[in-house]
Amino acid sequence: MEQIMTAETRADRRALVAAGVTVLLWASAFVAIRSAAQDFSPGALALGRLLAGSVVLGAIWLVRGEGLPPRAAWPGILGSGILWFGLYMVVLNWGEQEVDAGTAAMVVNVGPIVIALLGGWLLREGFPPLLMAGMAVSFAGAVVVGVSMSGGGHASIVGVLLCLFAAVTYAGGVVCQKPALRHASALQVTTFGCFVGMVACLPFAGELVSQLGTAPLSATLNVLYLGVFPTALAFTTWAYALARTTAGRMGATTYVVPALVVLMAWIVLGEIPGLLTLAGGLLCLAGVAVSRRRPGTA
């Protein structure tokens, strides 16, 4: 019994470390996207990132010789590939052309609530009162963020809406990915999800080639960084941890991302959201925290 508990503890620790790596790298992605968005359009940036990620993941997959995912895993791989690797990345890139990195991270982080909603609907897990209360609080936060950005014109409000849509596609990707991990390894699910997203973004190939010719080296290196670290590495560590816990708990690990993004964006880009925007973002996160509480907990 003691040996079993020790093995479970080690597995939990490995999953926690994997989740920590994911959170840190995903936080850095918001800053890198914001920087690269000055030289690459949303679709071209997504395709470049996915191409770099596919090369790295494909090489690792070939070396490990894990083979093709089982047929049962493919619905989840296709769903997560289209929604998360493809659509999410394009929409987030677009949103970050309109709002700063910290604001984007705070709005996108309502994703765990959407995950819980989709779980209640698709997996028949129900809709607890705390979930509905958390939704109301997060919606109020999103409204505050939108109002705070309205001084920057229509484009800023569009940016907030795009980030909200990105949160929905992120949540949909997680819900699709979880069942796939019952049948295939984290590497298989991540690698082929990345391949699917890359294929979905191929219509932007012309833009990518054109913009690579004019972009400065720093912007191109940002694209490569996004593909190798926040995509190839972080999505794999995410899938590894997700396979060992619930989607809801994994969603909760992203609470710390906005704080890291605000700090990184301040250091690297000199950006920091305004006080009203920060207040709205904190409301979004408070709503997520409320939605994930269990009844009777302090």
Rank of each mutant, 00 (worst) to 15 (best):
A247F: 09
V228Q: 12
L117Y: 05
V257L: 09
A265P: 11
G281F: 02
G153Q: 11
T214C: 12
G193S: 10
A59F: 11
P258D: 02
S156N: 12
P273F: 01
T277V: 04
I82T: 10
C194I: 13
V174N: 07
A72Q: 14
Y240E: 01
L131I: 02
C194H: 02
R34I: 07
V17P: 05
C163M: 03
V262S: 08
F165Y: 15
G248Q: 13
L263E: 02
A36G: 07
P203K: 12
G281T: 02
S35E: 14
G227E: 10
T214A: 15
N109V: 00
A155G: 12
G120K: 03
I267K: 14
T277N: 05
N222G: 12
A104C: 05
V23K: 04
T22K: 08
A289E: 05
W74H: 06
L217V: 09
P112E: 11
A219K: 06
A298K: 14
W74K: 02
A252S: 09
Q97L: 12
V268W: 13
T231F: 14
N93W: 09
A11M: 10
G270L: 10
M89Q: 14
A11G: 10
G193F: 11
R244E: 04
T103N: 11
Q97C: 04
V168C: 01
W121G: 11
A286I: 00
S80H: 09
L123F: 15
L57Y: 01
C176I: 01
V144L: 00
M5E: 15
G20Q: 10
V189W: 03
R294T: 07
G67R: 08
G134L: 03
D100F: 01
Q38M: 13
L83Q: 10
C201A: 14
I33P: 09
M89N: 12
L278A: 04
A140K: 08
V90L: 12
T253S: 12
